[in-house]
């Protein structure tokens, strides 16, 4: 852990050397996601509810997904770079060092510009706070924090699996975007508006539905459209941990059969 902080800290200092460029990137990260939020608000001008959820409630779900994804992006940038390292043979260097490869990959890149998305997610949550009346209890607060952490872990695991798949395919694939960018987009809306098989995929395979929708529905006191057991919202951390375990397993398998591309 100390080593990660050391390596990531060095990266961070490097990143912030170019002030103007850095400011522009943060600003663009903020606007990119901000216009999405704006688009949602514009649609809610015309329509009053989305699958039985009001604008404030959807903003809450949206903010929850956004903040989690931003955290995952912030710490998982190195995983997105892993495919390049593998393709260019740079990964060999990682393997020769006496530090766990995953730790090195994670610390290889950290992108503070992602705070733009984070800021936007917090803005959405603030708006949701104004537009809804949530009956906060300590349990709900804990669930809220747990949901954000769990969702971030799920996204990080998607990055991890995406990187691990490169051990076999060498090429990275745009397919991963379906579960990352597509995943946040999907998780920003109430799950009942999607078709059954989409719901199935995002509840039981990439469990974003369990880490975002269910905790949010519980906090907002919305009915459960799928009739799952009442303790389902509290399963988020467990589900995220299981999914992470699966990701680590795939990463380990990939690492074991990794063959250098040479050069």
């Amino acid at each position: 852990m100390r080593l990660y902080l050391l390596l990531a800290g060095a990266r961070l200092r490097g990143q912030t050397q170019y002030r103007v460029s850095f400011a522009l990137q943060v600003a663009s990260s903020f606007t990119s996601t901000f216009v999405e939020l704006l688009a949602l608000l514009i649609l809610f001008r015309t329509f009053s509810s989305l699958g039985g959820w009001s604008v404030g409630e959807v903003a809450f779900l949206y903010g929850l997904a956004s903040v989690s994804f931003a955290l995952a992006e912030l710490f998982g940038e190195g995983l997105e770079q892993a495919s390049r390292m593998i393709r260019e043979g740079e990964f060999d260097r990682v393997l020769t060092r006496p530090v766990a490869p995953l730790l090195q990959v994670l610390a290889a890149d950290i992108q503070p510009r992602r705070i733009g998305r984070l800021a936007q997610g917090i803005l959405a949550l603030a708006l949701a706070g104004r537009w809804t009346t949530i009956d906060w209890t300590p349990l709900k607060a804990a669930l809220f924090i747990g949901a954000i952490a769990s969702t971030a872990v799920v996204f990080l695991t998607v990055f991890l699996i995406g990187a691990a798949i490169c051990f076999w395919t060498i090429e990275s694939s745009e397919f991963q975007n379906i579960f990352t960018y597509g995943g946040t987009e999907l998780a920003s809306n109430p799950l009942q508006i999607y078709s059954r098989w989409l719901q199935g995929i995002f509840l039981y395979i990439v469990p974003l539905g369990l880490t975002t929708f269910y905790p949010a529905a519980h906090i907002l006191a919305k009915p459960d459209p799928f009739g799952l057991p009442p303790f389902t919202p509290f399963l988020a951390p467990l589900v995220a941990a299981l999914f992470l375990g699966l990701g680590l397993l795939i990463w380990g398998l990939g690492l074991r059969q990794y063959q250098s591309t040479g050069s």
Binding site: L43, L50, N177, I178, G182, E185, N189, I193
Partner: peptide, 16 residues
Amino acid sequence: TNGFFGLLRSSVFIAF
């Protein structure tokens, strides 16, 4: 990817 996002955006409009 385009198709997946198309599906998500369609679902949102259908629900709205």
